[in-house]
Simulated scan of single mutants.
Amino acid sequence: MNDPARRLTLSADTWDLLWSFVHRILVVNLGLVLGCLPLLIGLLAVAEPWRYPIFFGLLAVLAGPAVAAAFSYLNEEDSRPPVRLFVRAYRRHWRRALAVAAVVTALVGVLVADIAMLYDAMPGAALVPLLVVLAVLLVSAGSCALALLPDSNLGLRSVARVAVYAAVRGWQWSLVSLVVAVVALVLVNQAPLLGLTTVPGCAAWVMLINARFQLNALSLSVVRVGQPPV
């Protein structure tokens, strides 16, 4: 008769894979919390942050380098990459990641302002669905751009062009990434301590997988040599 406990016992390779994943998620959680610390402090200090969009928009830009470093760290081939690789990725990509985050935040801010002005008045309200779609695609394009930064030597213009094309081409993954980001924010808001120790790294991992699906559809062997996707 088979022992149920034996059937539940995992192999050594499976345990190693699980602990490797947990190790990466914990490091990414710590890195994202430290990288987004000004934004987190601002959210804790202000009861109604939506009343100060410019201030919190500037703080949100600081999340770009941390997210790029998280994507780079999650892409490491080592089973348990040391923490210094996260720090190294942050220092290497922070300028370009900051530029990407600044552009995406500014454009999304403009779209949100337009939506707030037009949603209750015709004929402007007819444009709201289009503006919402554009905002979703911008967020997804930003995610793709941050995922592409560590894996290519492309200039920012080429990265932006590839990221936008990938976001439009893989729109279904754009929606998934947006849902994951929203769910992560809700969970962190409901249980800040527990959420910050578990959710950010898992959300970054899912968004990175989605970005890979979107970018792989563009034949990256062509993109990496600097030619536009066809």
Rank of each mutant, 00 (worst) to 15 (best):
V179E: 02
A116Y: 08
Q190V: 14
V27H: 04
L149S: 04
A163M: 05
A141V: 01
P4S: 13
A89L: 08
P49D: 03
L26F: 10
A5D: 10
L58S: 05
V128G: 06
I209K: 11
A106L: 14
R80K: 11
L149E: 11
V199G: 06
S177Q: 15
V28F: 01
N216P: 12
L130V: 14
I54P: 03
V176W: 06
L220A: 02
V108P: 01
V87S: 05
V162F: 07
R157F: 12
V139F: 15
V222D: 13
N2K: 15
R84E: 09
R96A: 12
V133K: 08
R157E: 08
V164K: 03
A167Y: 00
V188S: 02
V223K: 04
G124P: 04
L196Y: 01
Y165K: 11
V179F: 12
L215H: 06
D13A: 13
L178F: 10
V180F: 06
W173D: 11
S72R: 09
L74M: 07
L194P: 07
A141Q: 02
W205A: 15
W94H: 09
L34H: 09
R161G: 14
S11Y: 14
V110C: 04
A12D: 13
T198V: 15
I209Q: 06
L34M: 05
A141E: 02
L138W: 05
L30R: 06
D78I: 15
F55G: 12
A60H: 07
